[in-house]
Each structure stands twice: as structure tokens, then as C-alpha cells.
Amino acid sequence: MPNETVTHSILKANGPQLDWIEDTVVREVPLTIHYNREEIATLLCSPFQTEELTLGFLINEGFIQIPEDVYEIRHDPLDHLVWVEGKPCLLQKELMSKRFVSACCGKSRASFCFANDALMVKPVTSTYSILLQEAYDYAKFLQSYLPLFQETGGIHSGGVGNRGEAVLTSYDIGRHNVFDKLSGSAFRSHLSLENHVIFFSGRVSSEILLKVAKMKVPILIARGAPTDMALSQATALNITVIGFAREQRLNIYTCSERIIR
């Protein structure tokens, strides 16, 4: 993967021994996104699935909703710029507003979210369920789908699964970017994620949970730990959260009825 990594001379220590070696380092680039000729954001990311990342970001921030909202997308890979022409967004400036605190979903569950999250996020209605062994299989696949991590130790990875099969996969230096890339890939493929699983290499924060809710995915399987705020949101939004997933071990934190023995 010559475009996604570089080599760097390092001094490697092994006990008292010091040796100069060439090490592989993951690349990080600033990707600047323009929507209807206005600069929207600059994302620090891996130079992979750039257009999918752009589309997923625009979906999850409320700029676009359906493929017909996108008229044209152009990418300059040398200067890391993307221009998207699409359906006019009347709330374009408001959608990039600062965070605020809101009480949502009742019973005094407080969460930090973007202003547009309060409008975009609704409880997941899917009754989709999976076998426990299927959850183990996704965890095993996630562990095997880490060649760049094993080479560099510097990326997150994730995927979308259905019936035990990985339908979409992605990776990036940023865990948020992994979800945006998956969302953008599904968007391009006209794939509804309501009866799918997302598996992910990192921890589950409230912001990650909100991205899953926006994608309308009912089950999230992660190798890392969830936060208490993420679990409060997951309960309120009817999302099954699984953490510490390994080949034959995992913790089911919320909405356990979706996991069948």
C-alpha cells in the first residue's frame, strides 16, 4: 500500500541493543471538503476511500440524504481537496454549529451532541437479530482484517456485516472517519443498513454511537470498551452495543434480545 504508508528511519531498542532500521509509518493527510463552492471542513484522515469519506461526512452532518442530492463530486488527490455540488442546503451554516448540551430521549438522559443530531437521530426500529456465533465471527474477521495495523500499529478498522458475511470494510487513522467511510460506501451502493451489523476495532464513545444511530444500524460490535454516555444513548435509541469482542468472548451491554444463542 505505497500511497497509505511511508518509511521512516528509527532507532529501535531491544534491551541494551540499539539499531537503526527502516520502519513503516501510516500516512495522515488533511482533506478539505467543499460543498456548493463553500469550504465546509478539513478532516485529518488516511488517503483511502476519500470520496466515500466525504459523502459519509456530508450524510452524517445533514447536508445530503439520498444519492440524488449529489450532482457531482471531484477529488484532487495531490492537494487533498474535494468539491461536491449538490442539492442546496438551507441550514448549511447552522449544521456546522458548535456543540451544545441537550436532554434527549427522556428520563433525564443528558448527552453532548451537535445541534443537528437532535433533529436527525431517532430510535432504531429494526428487529434484526443475529446468532451469538455470528457475533464471534465478526470479531474474528475484524482481528484478521488488520494488515495495515499489524504493519504500522496506527489505524482503526471496521466493517458492515449481514448473515455472517462482511459486506463493506474500511480503515483510517481516525475512528470517526471509519464510520463516515462505511456510511459513504453504503450510500454509493444504495445499501440500506437497517438490517446489518457494524463491527469496529476501537472504543464506543457517545459520538460514535450517534453515528451508528444516524446510519440506522441496530447492532454495533466493538473490540474496545463503551462509555457510560454511549450506553445511555444506546438504550434510549434501541441499539445493541457489544464490547470487548474477541474470537469467543464479548460483553453485551444493551438491547441483548437481538443476540440469540
Rank of each mutant, 00 (worst) to 15 (best):
T50A: 09
E52A: 14
E52S: 14
T54A: 11
T54H: 04
G56A: 04
G56I: 01
G56D: 03
F57K: 05
F57H: 11
L58S: 01
I59Y: 11
I59S: 05
N60Y: 00
E61K: 09
G62F: 10
G62S: 10
F63N: 07
F63E: 05
E68P: 01
V70Y: 02
Y71A: 13
E72N: 14
E72T: 12
D76R: 09
H80P: 01
V82D: 04
E85W: 12
G86V: 05
G86L: 08
L90D: 09
L91Y: 11
E94H: 11
K98P: 12
R99H: 06
V101A: 10
A103G: 13
S108A: 08
S108C: 05
R109W: 02
F112D: 04
F114W: 07
P123E: 06
P123N: 11
V124M: 02
V124W: 00
S126H: 05
L132M: 03
E134G: 08
Y136P: 00
Y138M: 11
A139R: 02
L142V: 04
Y145M: 08
P147R: 08
L148T: 09
T152M: 06
G154Y: 00
H156L: 02
S157G: 12
S157R: 05
G159H: 03
V160Q: 02
V160P: 08
G161K: 03
R163T: 03
G164D: 08
G164T: 06
